[in-house]
Amino acid sequence: MTASTALTATGLGKRYRGNWALKDCSLAVPAGRVAALVGPNGAGKTTLLHLATGLLTPTSGSVSVFGEPAGRNATLARVAFLAQDKPLYDGFTVADMLRFGRHLNPRWDDDSARTRLAALGIPLDRKVGALSGGQQAQVALTVALAKRPELLLLDEPLANLDPLARHEVMRDLMVAVAEREMTVVLSSHVVPDLKDTCDWLIVLNGGRVQLSGDIEELIAGHRLLTGPVSLADGVAGRLDTVDDRRTDRQATLLVRAGPGEVFDPRWTVRGVELEELVVAYLRSPDSTALPRLTLAGVLGGN
């Protein structure tokens, strides 16, 4: 069963001196997914990605990639990681970056990298430091893709990019996913950019996992209710309530409920958008909606 899971964390924790950057984190990202890793600054997103690449070692628990412990040589060949600062050598030309990548990576695909850069109009003889921010992001993504990873981890790939560059990076990433078997985990805090591109959502908050699941199932499994405050306690007592806001007359509740759930007709009931869902969970750090089956699966797969 681990064969179909690209990234698995079990009770994973990382402590820096006295502080837990990540605590008791259990999740499983199925292979072939494009997973969004969302959360406020300091939520533990970068720590989780660094643990998954093996750049950090866990303080507690474990993390594995395609069933093998993260950071082993055999695992490293299958994983590419693009750090937040898009680490390129400013003094290198684009061609030098490709040569560098070719020397370090046995599965390096030079042809596709050159084709990609030509299509983007990025000259190979240009110094990396002389490229625009968007072009640097594209060169970094090209290098990561040329490694032919089965799991691609991207830390804030869209940060500091203008809207056009963001669109182009996401488009090229989606084309790469369409062309080959690849799982992607990308962190971001720009949720609207992720709406049509990601199909799995992980919400991290204060070092803990609040949500991990298929985006469509998560959207289908939540309802937003607006109605008289006198009815609120009844609903809150019956269903898991993620977000509960009340005035003296009106209540607005975000609850976990499927499309078949029947409510008092005095409620106005509607579905939720991805961004509403994320914001509601982040505002209520104690709420979690982790499917128990997935968790049991993770533990059973050990």
């Binding site: 072939g32 996401m170 989606m174 996913v177 049509d196």
Partner: peptide, 11 residues
């Protein structure tokens, strides 16, 4: 995907 920048699984 190349045109709309969406997840291929959606298509």
């Amino acid at each position: 995907v190349d045109q709309l920048a969406i997840n291929p699984n959606t298509v």
